[in-house]
């Protein structure tokens, strides 16, 4: 008796789901936007974690942080003239190039599942364009160098001593760090380390191993 009752319920449920299945069949599909919605993009930007300060980047370079991937979005000529150690060059003009599968070519050179990508240009503007594009393509962990190379030269290469009257201990610490960083990068730019930098740049210009981009695994 109990068994028969259960069987009736199961038959009823099957019927209900078959009706649902048929409704599903005729339900129109909505196009899924593969790119990030403008709303989410603005939210990401406004959260204030879109930028890496020059101090933070300087420290990461000095620490030889393996996760850091600097991307120079200026022209090739500018890149050849000066670049930050370990940076690769993807000129902004080339950023819209696509391969035969309709994927952005430059996406292959970056591995955001493993790296922190920091875009930089002379100011903020070009880097911001690259950041916007990368973020819309759902690349994870992409940032911009705050103030660009101009800010880099202001703060790191020509550090200004804090005013003795108003300065806080933090400002002094920052100043000390910048002086140290200046020595580090000054040497890197002039001395024997320059060859290493140049070599790195030559190697890491977009001939990096072809690997596709993924976001860091969610779910499990």
């Amino acid at each position: 008796m109990e068994h028969k009752k259960q069987l009736r319920i199961y038959l009823l449920l099957t019927a209900v789901f078959m009706v649902l299945a048929i409704i599903m069949f005729f339900l129109p599909d909505k196009r899924v936007d593969k790119e990030l919605s403008p709303r989410t993009l603005i939210k990401l930007y406004n959260h204030g974690n879109a930028y890496y300060s020059v101090d933070k980047v300087a420290k990461m370079i000095i620490d030889e942080n393996p996760a850091l991937q600097l991307v120079d979005v200026r022209s090739e000529a500018e890149f050849a003239e000066f670049s930050l150690p370990g940076a690769i060059n993807i000129p902004l003009e080339k950023i819209l190039e696509k391969d035969e599968h309709n994927n952005y070519v430059w996406k292959e050179y970056l591995r955001p599942e493993k790296k922190i990508t920091v875009f930089y240009s002379n100011g903020d503007l070009k880097a911001a364009q690259a950041w916007t594009l990368a973020t819309r393509l759902r690349m994870d962990k992409v940032f911009m160098l705050e103030g660009g190379l101009n800010n880099w030269f202001d703060k790191i290469m020509t550090p200004e001593a804090p005013k003795a009257t108003t300065a806080t201990p933090e400002e002094y610490a920052a100043y000390e760090f910048r002086k140290m960083a200046k020595t580090f990068f000054g040497r890197a730019n002039a001395g024997q380390a320059a060859s290493i930098t140049a070599e790195e740049n030559a190697n890491s210009a977009p001939v990096v191993k072809k690997k596709k981009v993924v976001s860091e695994g969610g779910g499990c």
């Binding site: 942080n65 393996p66 996760a67 599942e113 922190i116 969610g218």
Partner: peptide, 23 residues
Amino acid sequence: AYNNEFYNSYTQNGERNPLSNWV
């Protein structure tokens, strides 16, 4: 942990706490 690519994708050189996560 920072020199291994797998660990470092979760720790980011100590920038991220691997345990501070939804899952």
